[in-house]
Design a protein around this nucleic acid. Structure first.
Length: 302
DNA sequence: CACTTGACCTGTCCGC
DNA sequence: TGCGGACAGGTCAAGT
């Protein structure tokens, strides 16, 4: 569930709450969440993490990066149910609303506990254990294969040609599958894919080959607008997601199709439909978003 | 290569 | 009530 807007919201929280703090010790409750060779474990935790001060909180697509003052960085991916929550004396337990997902920490889903020397903690929680955090030399972050292959994020119009080049290579797949591919458009996940496609009136199953350059440009722009709005609203909380303080995001209250099956389309009133495209639950308006047959796009021949 | 499917996990929800 | 199964979605490995 954490897509670019959720990760960016977490990043902003970490920038405010942990940059400047020094890690005193690290406790790993789930080794799978901190995949480091056991032979180098003591060195990794003892000299690369413990004792280091956090100097910056960065993000690339859905990847979080905490730079340390020893030329190493913590690199993390929340995958579906990961959380990065900070607790200090000022906000530990008491004082949180009753519906807080994280009134008490650590909890059953806590996989890693970063304890700072001022008594505060950064907890990495992950119900489903898909997420991970690792340590790499800071200059090597961009060379992690997954990060090196990422396509552009949609925020800079100057990057549209690169997006276009990459998506054009996948002409025989659905437009939804294409934009979910992080090598094509970085940061988009299931929620913002559906919302962007609704905005541009594109059917999720339409083949890339049948989408015009103008439509691709509109889709690229819509992805940026939808995700920018979501960042402003603290992201989307479907079930698990919370920011670095444990707060939920409110974007889904403004979503047009995601999780709105059966409810009227805000443009035309047609009930939103849910199907499966690219192996994912997919929401769309069957009236506004109609697949254009390939033949209808050709000029009439005479 | 491009593209699709299954695996990784756990909690929740639905039908019986 | 309990239980089995479907489902949720980000990415990778293995398949076509």
């Amino acid at each position: 569930m954490p897509e670019l807007p959720e990760v960016e919201t977490v990043r902003r929280g970490l920038e405010r709450l942990v940059v400047g703090r020094r890690i005193d010790r690290v406790e790993v409750f789930e080794p799978k969440s901190f995949p480091v060779d056991s032979d180098t474990w003591v060195e990794t935790v003892g000299t690369r993490v413990a004792g280091a001060q956090v100097v910056a909180a960065r993000r690339r697509a859905k990847v979080l990066i905490l730079d340390l003052d020893n030329d190493h960085s913590l690199v993390g991916h929340l995958k579906m149910t990961g959380q990065m929550v900070v607790r200090g004396q000022e906000n530990w337990g008491a004082g949180h609303p009753d519906d807080s997902l994280l009134a008490r920490l650590p909890d059953r889903s806590t996989r890693i506990d970063f304890a700072f020397d001022d008594g505060s903690h950064l907890f990495f929680n992950d119900q489903r254990k898909f997420g991970w955090i690792t340590v790499v030399p800071t200059p090597a972050v961009e060379q992690i294969p997954f990060i090196a292959r990422l396509g552009p994020e949609p925020f800079d119009p100057a990057d549209f040609p690169e997006f276009h080049r990459r998506i054009a290579r996948r002409s025989r797949t659905s437009v939804k599958a294409a934009i979910l591919n992080q090598e094509v458009l970085a940061g988009v996940g299931n929620i913002y894919a559906d919302e962007s496609l609704w905005t541009t009136r594109l059917h999720p199953a339409q083949l890339v080959a049948d989408v015009s350059t103008d439509q691709l440009r509109a889709l690229y722009t819509a992805a940026a607008e939808v995700m920018t709005l979501s960042i402003d609203l603290g992201g989307s909380t479907d079930r698990n997601y919370v920011d670095a303080e444990g707060n939920k995001g409110s974007y889904l209250g403004f979503a047009h199709v995601f999780r709105r099956e059966g409810q009227p389309c805000s443009r035309c009133g047609t009930p939103i439909r849910k199907t499966k495209v690219a192996g994912r639950g997919t929401h769309f308006c069957p009236t506004c978003q109609q697949t254009m047959p390939a033949t209808a796009r050709r000029p009439t021949q005479h």
